[in-house]
Write a protein that binds this DNA or RNA. Structure first.
Lengths: 220, 220
DNA sequence: TCGATTACCTAGTCACGAGTAGGATATACC
DNA sequence: GGTATATCCTACTCGTGACTAGGTAATCGA
């Protein structure tokens, strides 16, 4: 004698790949919105149209799912950036390309900025992944504006001092992140306007810094 | 017959105000480090040298404790800013004062930037509080660089268009936030260097925007 | 010195969330 | 059409974390 209650509304069955994609889409939106600890597996499953056990057919744990999302969107970010960086040209041209690539990436991955650069958990693995991604982004920026490539710990090898460069990339990354998040609340703004504002606000600033020019407090 | 085990190491007793302060200090550090959901009441209590029931003698709930911290640090931020804003002078002078005030505030409240502008929870009250604080900060910046005071929703009333102004303040706030967080990992950097970098990177940028000058993509 | 107060504790309750066991049924393939 | 496989489910377990009931002892004022 089966222990069944009324057999429920039979849900649409999907092939594994499609269901997995739905789960990832639901998860990235919720993680970005509520953070890692604030998001329950049950919510993700519900959003993906299933129940929790199905989710565990695709991912071994909540942490693994989150790690997979971080890895995936980071790879897309790096690929996008690699495609649009290093093409030579003036500093200004390189910057415009980088900002344009960032805007395109954000349009394709609206939840990425929140997940990467805003969330704060106590889980050590996640923190390390965040740190690595931030370092990648800073490295990409440093390669443009500082003429460096890899480790930024050396003193000043012809370009901008490493510390000043690090501070500058933090400002730029933070500014671009918040601008991107603001954009998700104002989707009517075209990507060109985003790039233009970023150039207007940030461009001349580090042009100065690179040229060795410094602002200094007025000596009274 | 008492049900007691060995009576434990008798802890030092503190007056209520002091214990409350210890709890708030512990809580703000942990919330900033691990986020709201990632922080357990037991951790906060342990860090403050007590057990959870004592914490509930001072705060009615975890949410109330968190709200209290947000309120407290926001008030300090606004007070600090009010003191150092609106003093007249050139735009450059006003900006330097604002950045200097921000640096002093961050030095006194190292966890504030993470708590205010980075954490993401699903709790509606907390999200609203974050939004309100961000709006306050943006308003303060807009008052300086846009010559506006209150609602920024109007079109362009003599100054910078409201939308461009909003985007610019997002970039500046994001940049200053990330710079401040970076600073907490490099406390050897003096406040003057922080202000100088912020000026170098951001100053000329919005000077341009305000002047009505615009960067525009090269027309091929 | 002796209550009264206040700070603090042990030992729980209870809800919620991650993860699992085992079984049912839609779909694909022959 | 009939069988095999893959998709999905119900109904749990078990740990953790917020919060509490009720009591003990240090400290303060008289």
């Amino acid at each position: 004698m089966p222990t069944n209650l009324p057999p429920r509304t039979p849900r649409r069955r999907l092939p594994a790949a499609e269901r997995r994609e739905l789960i990832e889409q639901a998860a990235i939106a919720l993680f970005a919105e509520r953070g890692y600890h604030g998001t329950a597996i049950d919510e993700i499953a519900r959003q993906a149209g299933i129940t929790p056990p199905v989710l565990y057919d695709h991912f071994t744990s909540k942490a693994a799912l989150h790690a997979r999302l971080l890895e995936r969107t980071r790879d897309e970010l790096l690929a996008m950036w690699r495609q649009n960086l290093g093409g030579g040209g003036t500093l200004e041209e390189q910057l415009v390309r980088a900002f344009t690539a960032w805007a395109a990436y954000v349009q394709a991955n609206p939840y990425a900025p929140r997940m990467f650069f805003r969330e704060s958990t106590g889980v050590e693995d996640i923190k390390q992944a965040h740190g690595a991604i931030a370092a990648d982004a800073n490295g990409a920026l440093a390669a443009i504006i500082g003429g460096l490539t890899g480790s930024g710990a050396s003193a000043d090898d012809g370009g901008v001092p490493a510390t000043a460069l690090a501070m500058t990339t933090e400002i730029i990354r933070g500014g671009l992140t918040e601008l991107a998040i603001w954009w998700t609340d104002h989707p009517e703004i075209p990507a060109e306007a985003i790039v233009a504002i970023a150039m207007n606000t940030l461009w001349l600033g580090f042009e100065r810094t690179i040229g060795g020019e410094r602002w200094s407090p007025p000596t009274p």
